[in-house]
Amino acid sequence: MNERWLKLLRTGALAVAVIGLLLVVLSPAISEPLSPGTLWWIEPVAYVGAGIFMIGAIVTLTAIRLESRRKAADRDTRSWSQVTQDYFDTFAHDMGRPLRRILGKQREVRALLNETGEPTPRMVAELLDEIEQQAPNFRLMIENVRVLVNLEDQNAKPAVEPVDAAAIIRNISDRYRPIARDRGLDLIWWSEPGEFGLVYGDASALDHVVTNLVDNATKFANEHIEVRLTRNDAHFLVRVWDDGNGIAESHLAHIFDRGWTPELSARSEKQSSGLGLYIASSLSLRCGGQLVVESQHRNGGDSKDHHTMFTLSLPLDNRPVAAQ
């Protein structure tokens, strides 16, 4: 039973108990018109009143106990989540330290090699590129686990703040354009209208969902990736489109399942954790929106229409009605 129903039950039971008590107290006054002068009805009215009072009181006490148990459980869950989050942040920071050192060293070596003006040996260049390209993967992996911990907390609520959605999409495009370029892909984005304005929602969640979608697109696109930001009267939409080979219809039903990857159905080695789209979908729902996918699979033919398009839809204003 949820919090709202428990509160209703407690209020209702308290009202019943009060009615029972009133029947007991007012039994002489009630019995007088029923049997003038004899007071015969006093006892039945008082007994019925006492019975109603007892039932009301028992239900009220039970509801209060259930409510307090629930609050204690919530406190436990919250503190568990906070402790986990704290541990994870420390872990992520400490994990990041060696990676920052490796990344920094790689950039220094690259700069020194560039200064010499000599051509860089192919294997060295590939190694340096590989280190640089793994940095965004690491960033996303750490973020995915942080969000996963947060999603486990049933009481966690999305932030509601003024968000420059176009700036977030622009930043993601800037982050992934070099990666896309290295993979021979062209990543473009745009917003309609051009001056998109502010929306009210969770900036981190928006950033995280779209980052997962764009990261996914860079893995499956053949040549082009498009990210488009639009709005209607109540929602804003982010569409991430790629011209990859599409998703088979039998896979579409599982695409947002936790841990599912295309390799699972092919019984081959997993190339990813299968968490990104699950997290993106769960986070979208938590923020009052939804994430849907539409895809045209190549099916081994020459169809030029093959593509995949994820559409994220979130409320333009997620503030409580009173605050709007």
């Binding site: 622009r170 745009w190 209208p193 051009g194």
Partner: peptide, 12 residues
């Protein structure tokens, strides 16, 4: 200038 990958759509 704002973003290398930004397209100006026909609507604008």
């Amino acid at each position: 200038y704002r973003s290398e990958g930004e397209l100006v759509p026909f609507s604008r």
